[in-house]
Design a protein around this nucleic acid. Sequence first.
DNA 1: CCCTGAACCTGACCGC
DNA 2: TGCGGTCAGGTTCAGG
Length: 276
Amino acid sequence: MPELPEVETTRRGIAPHLLGQTILAVTVRQRSLRWPVPTELNQNLRSRSIDAIARRGKYLLLYISSDGNNHSGLLIHLGMSGSLRIVASGTPAARHDHVDFLLGSGQTLRYTDPRRFGCILWCDQSPAEHPLLSQLGPEPLTPSFSAEYLHRHSRGRSTAIKSFIMDSHVVVGVGNIYANEALFLSGIHPARAAGRISAARYARLHGNIQTILDSAIAQGGTTLRDFVGGDGKPGYFRQSLLVYGRKGQSCTRCLAILKEIRINQRSTVFCPTCQR
DNA sequence: CCCTGAACCTGACCGC
DNA sequence: TGCGGTCAGGTTCAGG
């Protein structure tokens, strides 16, 4: 389900129910996710409390209190189809409800993931120190991500601009939906070589990536199929999508028929007139 | 270093 | 109704 706006929507939805809560028990029904859910999860988490929940790219970082001054925690990714939500403890588990965190409040944090591309990893140290995060590019909504940065890092790169902005080493959090949208807003053909785009066009692209992610977060993310935030509400950004999922329909700007191509096995929809 | 394609897995949908 | 093929919001890894 999730790109950055959906993950952030999830974080904001569940955070108020988690902060300061004690974890009474962890139930793992299915441990074969992207990587195995650690067997010592229940032992490590029992009677500990949740200090904070942060996000890095599409990863969620759960900070767990510890006796000393060293942090520990969880690193969670929702993969393609994962979700985290708060349910009343005792709510019967459905088919793909793989992990439950029973909280002192009488609520349960429930991890659901039909395709099991996500992960739940235990971190002895701060989850921010996990190797999976060490190679990630800047957060798109912070000043470390700039038009100049994009332009500089793209020099000499022959890969398609869409692949380039979806590369987490370049910038985190831009998935297939918002990559399509940002390129449309910027008038850039998604297959154009990243190294052959001017600084001026990168300035527009940078701005549009930030705008699209900001407004998607403001609307609670994009709900496709059954995404809901941690508070159970669907996202409303879907109605704002201008190209994603609109193959064969007309461009909102010039009325040409939107085309679909494949870039790195991902569906890519664009306007052949507006995007060059 | 850079780029491409395969792999992980289930479910929904479409055409026959 | 059933069956096979295709596609789906992500990321890592192997190989050229």
